[in-house]
């Protein structure tokens, strides 16, 4: 591939992303592709935290669940407007993220991973038992949304189109954020926080901001899931499922927007089709994780990128 071709491709990446997902429709069915795109939004939210800021969390399902339940509760108690539900979900995810972030963000490494997990466990308990009067406990809850203008989310095609639009916007937003000075500072924090502090930055504030952004994006993904299924169950907030998004991040290549997309799609393809052939799904996931950690740390996208840069060098020579 020529360098100029790559640069042109980079310029039109949003259109390319949309085109790739449109191409999935005839291959996988529209329903599945919508699922894939929503999961990709969630992976992007997680990647902001793990890939860019270098904070591994084992409890990001909490915010997905908060988004889904907030959207459902909004439909039940306020109105059936789907956009209001999305707004409520994002605000709820951001607010909880802000509140917990004040405690969580102070820690790093192993502590960060497990405190998130502990809070996720608390959230799971709240949804499953303590607040079961409102959330329906183990049975989950359903909610229906009224059509607004052309946005009738009961219609598959419109749901698909809207999700695609959201995904493209989120990709643009994350890419814009991470190439801004703010994003560069996040990477500085990942590499060496002491130095970032030494340069005079209040790293706590930036970390909190990134955390809140990540949680509200995750809640947005949860609300989209809710719009898609019109049904929320406690499995949306189950802490043991957090490993899925970590896996997706790693297989695609952490710390890269396209890596997150590749990872999200690869994980969804694996989890949708492989369990038909593999009985021991958890064991397979574990072994695949070990292989990724030991042999394949840069992920699929990183592998692809080194392949291209080598090609570039050949072209130059």
């Amino acid at each position: 591939m020529q360098i100029s071709t790559i640069n042109t491709l980079k310029k039109y990446d949003l259109i390319l992303v949309a085109a790739v997902f449109l191409a999935f429709v005839p291959l996988l069915t529209m329903q599945r592709t919508t699922d894939f795109m929503i999961f990709c939004v969630f992976v992007l939210a997680y990647d902001l935290l793990y890939g860019y800021m270098g904070r591994l969390s084992f409890g990001h399902m909490l915010y997905l669940g908060i988004g889904a339940y907030a959207a459902a509760l909004s439909a039940e108690h306020f109105s059936g407007n789907p956009f209001l539900a999305l707004l409520v979900a994002v605000v709820a995810g951001g607010a909880v993220g802000l509140l917990l972030g004040l405690i969580i963000v102070r820690t790093t490494g192993a502590c960060f991973a497990l405190i998130n997990l502990a809070f996720n466990q608390v959230g799971y308990f709240l949804v499953l038992i303590a607040l079961s009067e409102w959330t329906g406990g183990e049975d989950g809850m359903s909610a229906f949304y009224d059509p607004v203008w052309i946005f009738d989310f009961g219609n598959r095609k419109i749901m698909f189109g809207f999700t695609l639009l959201c995904l493209v916007c989120v990709v643009y937003l994350v890419r814009r954020l991470t190439s801004s000075p703010f994003g560069i500072l996040l990477r500085t924090i990942k590499e060496n926080e002491t130095r970032a502090k030494f340069l005079g930055y209040n790293t706590f504030l930036y970390k909190l901001l990134a955390f809140v952004l990540s949680t509200s994006l995750a809640a947005f993904a949860g609300a989209l899931t809710m719009l898609n299924y019109t049904y929320a169950t406690p499995s949306f907030i189950d802490p043991t499922r957090s490993v899925e998004v970590i896996f997706a991040c790693l297989i695609g290549g952490a710390g890269n927007v396209y890596g997150a997309l590749v990872g999200g799609v690869s994980y969804m393809i694996l989890s949708n089709y492989l369990p038909n052939y593999i009985q021991r799904w958890e064991m397979f996931l574990g072994i695949a994780l070990l292989v990724l950690v030991f042999k394949f740390q840069s992920g699929l996208w990183g592998y692809f990128r080194t392949f291209i840069t080598e090609r570039k060098r050949e072209v130059k020579a």
Binding site: L56, A110, E282, M283, G286, I287, L290, V293, F294
Partner: peptide, 26 residues
Amino acid sequence: LYGQSIDYAIIATYAVLLIGVDACKW
């Protein structure tokens, strides 16, 4: 995984847990 990112060690032990739990179930 000594000397590498702590995150990888955490993920690796989690992977071991997943494999082991599934083996127990088996």
